[in-house]
């Protein structure tokens, strides 16, 4: 980059403060901005993230503010993005890579699973790779193929990676900063279908809640509904509808898939006796299967019904015109809740 004629960083705009109602995308943008401002070793790398601000505008304005050496438009090569990010991390930088869409993470799959995830282990802790890989994921946006997938379980299955996914603007703002600060590589899955939903975010809040740990987002007594990322809103709507019918659903947002916080789920299921897991990814070998196995093991004598899963089918992500028949809807979630209660 020594000869890159990057525009001089613009004078910094006033930093937003206080609690504001902002979109999910803006929350990540402001979290990244704070990470860039806090540590000049932090870099953003990806395709079209500079002048364009990313295809979802998540990095909007950041190259103008921090310069082209820190907000880097890379060649169109995902393995190259992650592979060079590993090298930069070895040199002491903290790269945050943007993969443009879920379906395009696979050219980088080798670098992520054979290199990024294992370097700390192979070096017996001598090397750390503080690399964040942001992946917009999930469907419901009417896109063409490879733009709506949910590959998170593939990464959660790989030791050495932390896999997290926020479900609200406030979570996104805090968690992206936590991810950048983490000494471990982090797969940061962003529910792209929620990018334009707004929520209150305290922009002065210190990021200190960590990346791990599920949280109860709605208390209930009859059924535990486990969700993460894009399906947390679906779960909350389901709980609201069920409440009108007299069923009390407790909703848990997993937040992290690696490590998976089974304790919070198990404590809830021990109260409710019933558990339904909902995600967009196919249920076969998915997060729901893992939750079901662990809950069965830990809560066997509390369970009033088998743990049920609501999610994608064992088919490639379908065409947009029928994607809403594939995605878990409030109706399908409530159908599973009814089956659980009827068992």
């Amino acid at each position: 980059m020594s000869t890159t004629t990057a525009a001089a960083p613009a004078a910094q705009a006033p930093v937003p403060a206080g609690t504001q109602k902002i979109t999910f995308a803006k929350a990540i943008n402001l979290g990244l901005r704070r990470a860039l401002a806090d540590d000049d070793k932090t870099l953003l790398m990806g395709e079209d993230i500079g002048k364009l601000g990313g295809v979802f505008r998540v990095t909007d304005g950041l190259q103008a503010e921090f310069g082209a050496k820190r907000v880097v438009d890379t060649p169109l090569a995902e393995s190259g993005i992650v592979g060079t990010a590993i090298g930069l991390a070895l040199r002491g930088y903290r790269p945050v890579c943007e993969i443009q869409f879920d379906g395009f993470v696979f050219p980088a799959f080798d670098q992520i699973t054979t290199q990024l995830s294992k370097m700390h282990y192979r070096s017996r802790g001598r090397l750390t790779l503080p690399v964040v890989i942001r992946v917009p994921y999930g469907g419901g946006i009417g896109a063409i193929e490879h733009h709506s997938e949910s590959p998170e379980a593939l990464f959660a299955h790989t030791a050495g990676l932390r896999v997290v996914t926020p479900s609200s603007p406030a979570q996104a703002y805090a968690m992206i900063q936590e991810a950048v600060a983490s000494p471990d590589p982090v797969m940061f899955f962003e529910p792209k279908g929620r990018y334009w939903e707004k929520g209150d975010v305290d922009l002065d809040a210190p990021a200190g809640n960590g990346l791990d740990g599920a949280r109860i987002v709605r208390a209930g007594t009859d059924v535990t509904l486990v969700a993460y990322g894009p399906t947390v809103q679906t779960a909350l709507k389901s709980a609201e509808t069920a409440a009108a019918e007299g069923t009390s659903i407790e909703v848990i947002d997993l937040r992290a898939l690696s490590p998976l916080d089974t304790a919070t789920v198990a404590a809830s299921v021990q109260r409710t006796g019933r558990c339904v897991v909902v995600h967009e990814a196919p249920v076969l070998y998915g997060t729901g299967a893992e939750v079901a196995a662990r809950i069965t093991e830990e809560c066997f004598y509390h369970l009033q019904a088998p743990v049920l899963r609501v999610g994608g089918f064992h088919v490639p992500y379908p065409v947009a015109k029928i994607e809403h028949d594939y995605l878990p809807s409030v109706d399908r979630v409530l159908d599973a809740v009814d089956r659980s209660l009827a068992f």
Binding site: S2, G80, T84, I86, L90, R91, Y93, Q111
Partner: peptide
């Protein structure tokens, strides 16, 4: 070779 390239990009920075 990609790690090496990234490392060299770090040397530049």
């Amino acid at each position: 070779t990609l790690h090496a390239t990234g490392y060299a990009m770090g040397i530049q920075r």
